[in-house]
């Protein structure tokens, strides 16, 4: 680490410049405050989801029938919407989203291991764990692309509308699964998160490339790996919230 504390952080000198009151480099601090502002953006989207859900009727088996059916009179229950897994034709509610969650958590773990290797200046280990993290990111993005295509495609039966026509799947104009807002917020929330994952993967690739070139050995520390690590963990954290508040609740 490049923090050689050459200046005493005693109370008299701390306001005279040159000291590090937060004991972290400016790069890491700026990443933290960027992530804080990003957390506010994501909160805006997730709270909008909560607001929309609370302002619509909830599905009640006693009123709307024991078997859940898609209807725009009440908010859909997620486990009735997200029931597909690739290759096999069975009803597997939320299983695929669960797998996506584990992929992202594991890629967060490999990122921690890359940061840990960076502290020890172990270039080969950093390379190895960065590569695993990038692979995890691609795996997640692939899963999300599949999830979107299934959501857009819709069920085989579709939903019958009052005018006799049928609606299949969802986009920003129609929604088979329930009120239009449900589909809109699905695309906005998972889309905004997916964009973050994509940019995280790109930044990880750039840093991985620099690790291979030996840039951080020349600089003398692997702090850049730590900074992209912060971003990557944040993206993982946001998914933890999306998983709970969009899919589970």
């Amino acid at each position: 680490m490049a923090h050689s504390a050459t200046i005493d952080n005693n109370s008299e000198d701390i306001w005279n410049g040159g000291a590090e009151p937060l004991k972290a480099s400016w790069g890491k601090l700026m990443m933290w405050f960027f992530l804080l502002s990003d957390a506010l953006s994501f909160s805006g989207l997730l709270v909008t989801y909560g607001f929309s859900r609370f302002s619509h009727k909830a599905y009640d088996p006693n009123i709307h029938g024991l078997v859940f059916k898609f209807s725009d009179t009440y908010w859909p229950i997620p486990e009735a919407v997200f029931t597909h897994i690739p290759f096999i034709h069975i009803n597997a509610p939320l299983v695929f989203v669960g797998i996506m969650t584990f992929i992202l958590i594991l890629s967060s773990v490999t990122m921690v291991l890359a940061v840990e290797a960076g502290h020890r200046m172990d270039k080969e280990e950093v390379k190895k764990w960065m590569l695993w993290t990038i692979l995890g990111g691609f795996a997640f993005l692939g899963c999300q692309a599949w999830e979107w295509s299934i959501f857009i495609q819709g069920s085989e039966e579709g939903r019958l509308l009052l005018d006799g026509s049928k609606v299949f799947g969802a986009n920003l104009h129609v929604n088979e699964y329930g009120p239009q807002l449900f589909a809109d917020l699905f695309f906005f929330i998972t889309g905004f998160h997916g964009t973050h994952v994509l940019s995280g993967v790109i930044i990880n690739i750039i840093v991985f490339y620099n690790v291979c070139l030996g840039t951080y050995d020349r600089v003398g520390n692997y702090e850049m790996v730590e900074k992209v690590g912060l971003y990557w963990h944040f993206v993982d954290l946001v998914w933890v919230f999306v998983f709970t508040f969009f899919y589970l609740v």
């Binding site: 937060l22 972290a24 690590g229 954290l237 933890v240 709970t244």
Partner: peptide, 22 residues
Amino acid sequence: TFVKTFYIVGEFMHLKHEAKTL
């Protein structure tokens, strides 16, 4: 979810071990 947040932010993002002000 708060338990998970605590571990991701505290341990993985290392915030637990940063300066109190941060």
